[in-house]
């Protein structure tokens, strides 16, 4: 059985991103397209997402004008392409607290958000440090933290402490502490709902940006190469990569980095009128394809 339909939804992109930011050590090796995406998980009477993107009102103009981020479209439009609305989403798993992953929580009024408690508490600790430590605050928007206050008061913020199994049937959260950020996590979907699944998917957030992070430059002689940005350590990133790859039985195509443009070479996809790609990873029983 296939329990969930899984889609990777592009909502913006950087056409020319330096490879060195994505793959450790690739200095002066040119650029590649970096899509910004979130994941939709649909099935078992549930609609869930992994991450929510950023808030264009707050960040869009600066990102577009200064850093070359192009083509942002709101969740209503992006999700509308597969026939759902932001209001339909009931559960959202935030892989980490960077603004481009949790900056758009306001657009999902009915969702409960899951975030590692360590991600929050370590950011708060970081904020208490003198200004000379401000590098540790990169990518954090204090406004997101204020929005999280409202979520918590409404009972819509679940602070997870470590791993949690079956947060939805067959959906597990896995802590990846001191990696890309203090309290990152990745999401596993056991799409046959079996305990020892033979159809697992890992949504890795920013623990990997590209396939090279998962298999190196030579697929015939694979190695793990960490991403270019770790608040924790490259060692921890590599060990978590091993954990993720093992959890999908070694099939790295089932470890899904949301910033990987080449997912289109592995799975069916289509480009919307707005120029955004929808990649279809799996279709639940009875679900109609959204890309064919």
């Amino acid at each position: 059985m296939t329990a969930y339909s899984l889609w990777v939804m592009e909502f913006a992109a950087v056409p020319n991103y330096p490879q060195s930011g994505l793959i450790y050590g690739m200095h002066n090796q040119g650029t590649r397209k970096l899509p910004y995406c979130y994941i939709v998980i649909k099935g078992q009477g549930q609609l869930a997402m992994v991450d929510v993107g950023y808030n264009h009102k707050a960040h869009g103009e600066v990102l577009a004008n200064t850093y070359g981020v192009r083509g942002w479209h709101p969740p209503r439009e992006v999700l509308g392409e597969i026939g759902i609305t932001p209001e339909d989403i009931s559960n959202i798993f935030i892989t980490h607290a960077h603004f481009d992953h949790m900056g758009n929580i306001e657009d999902f009024p009915n969702a409960t958000f899951y975030l590692q408690e360590r991600e929050l508490s370590k950011w708060v600790w970081t904020m208490s440090l003198p200004r000379r430590f401000r590098w540790l605050m990169l990518g954090i928007d204090p406004a997101d933290i204020m929005r999280a206050v409202d979520l918590a008061r409404q009972g819509r913020l679940v602070c997870v402490d470590g791993d949690r199994e079956n947060v939805l049937a067959g959906v597990d959260l896995h802590a990846a502490f001191d990696t890309h950020t203090w309290g990152s996590m990745y999401v596993t979907v056991r799409n046959d709902l079996a305990t020892n699944s033979e159809s697992s998917w890992v949504f890795c957030g920013d623990l990997a940006y590209t396939q090279e992070n998962l298999r190196g430059h030579d697929p015939k002689d694979p190695e793990y190469i960490p991403i270019g940005f770790a608040m924790g350590s490259q060692f921890n990133l590599i060990m978590k990569t091993e954990e993720m790859v093992k959890s999908v039985g070694g099939d790295i195509t089932h470890v899904v980095p949301p910033h990987e443009e080449r997912l289109k070479d592995l799975f069916p996809s289509r480009i919307t009128k707005a120029g955004l790609r929808i990649t279809e990873l799996a279709l639940a029983e009875g679900e109609k394809s959204q890309v064919r």
Binding site: V14, Y36, D100
Partner: peptide
């Protein structure tokens, strides 16, 4: 603070530079 950031150059609400995911793609 957001209004102040919009009133003059040189004041940013979020430090995008060198952050991950497309930031630093100057």
């Amino acid at each position: 603070l957001e209004r102040a950031a919009g009133a003059l150059p040189g004041f940013e609400m979020v430090s995008y530079e060198r952050a991950c995911c497309g930031l630093g793609a100057k």
